[in-house]
């Protein structure tokens, strides 16, 4: 697993209501189960109502890290929304960072209401690509809707994280944890979503640096 230095700084970027909190907890639990130490830093409160939300997951051995990643020290961004991925890259990016992002925008209220335009999506994606060592764009929302429920978006992104191969994570790691917390049917659906995410990662993209 090249590039897995500790502490490993993972940022989950999204919008209030997208489920950052659950993903960050899930990933942290998986690592704790694997014998690592993990901490999660989250923004709560009014950010639940349509604001930008980010969760920091920091993985280490023994020593507990601060729950907030220093600026410019992100190792990987798991973005549930493209503009949010770029927002996080601006503050936490560096030439070595990896970015996985869902491609479906969640429009801010000022865009919904027609007062502002959502920034040009291809330009956002180009910027993400330029500012990342390697970037993956996953149509997770689309795939989730194909599965019949937009709620699967998160698990598809988790699958993409496994598939990207930058972290020592396997499908089995998540199977163990998810099974604990879910009824069988839900578990099967979530596992299917993870598999869809793994498959969605393009193996062809190359590291720049």
């Amino acid at each position: 697993m090249s590039g897995f230095k500790l502490p490993y700084n993972l940022i989950i970027a999204g919008v209030g209501g997208q489920g950052n909190v659950l993903i960050s907890q899930l990933i942290a639990r998986v690592f704790i189960r694997k014998g690592f130490t993990a901490v999660v830093g989250e923004t709560y409160g009014v950010s639940q109502r349509g604001g930008s939300v980010m969760s920091h997951v920091r993985i280490s051995r023994e020593r507990v890290s601060a729950p907030i990643i220093p600026k410019g020290h992100g190792d990987l961004i798991l973005g549930l929304e493209p503009m949010e991925s770029l927002r996080i890259l601006r503050d936490f990016g560096n030439p070595g960072i990896f970015t996985l992002t869902n491609t479906r925008p969640v429009e801010p209220i000022d865009v919904i209401s027609g007062n502002l335009a959502y920034p040009d999506l291809p330009a956002i994606m180009r910027a993400i690509e330029t500012l990342s060592n390697q970037a993956w764009f996953v149509p997770a929302s689309k795939l989730a809707l194909e599965m019949g429920n937009s709620l699967f978006t998160n698990m598809i992104m988790v699958g993409a994280l496994i598939g990207a191969g930058k972290l020592p994570l396997t499908e089995q790691n998540f199977v163990d944890i998810l099974h604990q917390y879910m009824p069988d049917k839900t578990f099967e659906d979530n596992l299917a979503a993870i598999r869809k995410g793994i498959a969605a990662i393009e193996k062809t993209s190359v590291e720049k640096r």
Binding site: G50, S52, L86, L89, P108, D110, Y118, R126, A127, L131
Partner: peptide, 17 residues
């Protein structure tokens, strides 16, 4: 690169009911 690439591409998310 951050300045040039992301200029104008990130807008605020206002809170609302």
């Amino acid at each position: 690169l951050v300045e040039s690439e992301s200029a104008g591409l990130v807008i605020e998310r206002a809170l609302g009911f």
